[in-house]
Simulated scan of single mutants.
Amino acid sequence: MAGLGGLGHLAVKLAVALGARTSVISRTPDKADEARSLGAEGFVVSTDAGQMEAVRDRFDVLVDTVSAPHDLTPYPRTVAMDGTLSHLGHLGPVTVNTTDLLVGRKKLSFAGSVGRPSTAAVLGFCAEHNITADIELLPSSPVNTALERNAVRYRFVLDMSDLD
């Protein structure tokens, strides 16, 4: 997985429950313990050239869950021959060097809504494997505080019971 935020932490949990050997790629080393606590076996700091070189052509699938605009350039190089870079997080324009995909017959995929039956199947799988989103619960009255705060692990959920 690339990214360990609101979507990424769930992707790690799902991959682990499916039996995948899972690694997390992050910009900084501060999420390594968190990634391992979710079940990831490996952790790679994307800003460390040596670590990125060590995982060159390693991953069958790399799921990019980073929600902000970011450079995709290093990611195709980590994908193994016939592997897939699946871009899920950022919904804006992306640029990718197609040569990095061509060498190794790599694929770039995007995912949209899969419809109700598939969503129900994933929710059933999550229920069966006790996969839930890690959240920070806040009362709804200070909603502006939640909106102004830039740091959350992993999602804010507002408790509406304080409303009349």
Rank of each mutant, 00 (worst) to 15 (best):
I25V: 14
A11W: 14
E148C: 02
N144C: 09
L138A: 15
S113D: 12
T95G: 11
K106Q: 06
T132K: 15
T84Q: 11
A11I: 12
T47A: 04
V24H: 04
T145S: 15
M160W: 06
S46F: 08
S118E: 13
L102D: 02
D57I: 08
L91C: 10
M1S: 11
G3D: 09
A40Y: 01
E53K: 15
A133G: 00
V63T: 06
A121L: 05
R153A: 02
V66R: 00
G115D: 01
K13P: 15
E148F: 05
P76A: 06
L10M: 15
S37T: 13
E34S: 00
G6K: 05
G42C: 08
P142S: 07
G3V: 06
R36T: 07
D159G: 01
L85H: 06
L62D: 09
L101M: 04
V143H: 05
D71S: 10
P74M: 02
V79F: 04
V55D: 01
L101I: 11
P76E: 08
T73Y: 11
T73G: 03
V24Q: 04
A2C: 10
D100F: 06
A111P: 02
L72M: 02
R77F: 07
A17I: 13
M81Q: 10
G115N: 07
G89P: 02
N97G: 10
T95H: 14
S109C: 08
A127W: 13
V96Y: 00
M160K: 03
V24T: 03
T47V: 00
M52W: 10
V122L: 15
G92F: 11
L108I: 10
C126F: 08
A40I: 09
H90W: 15
D33R: 10
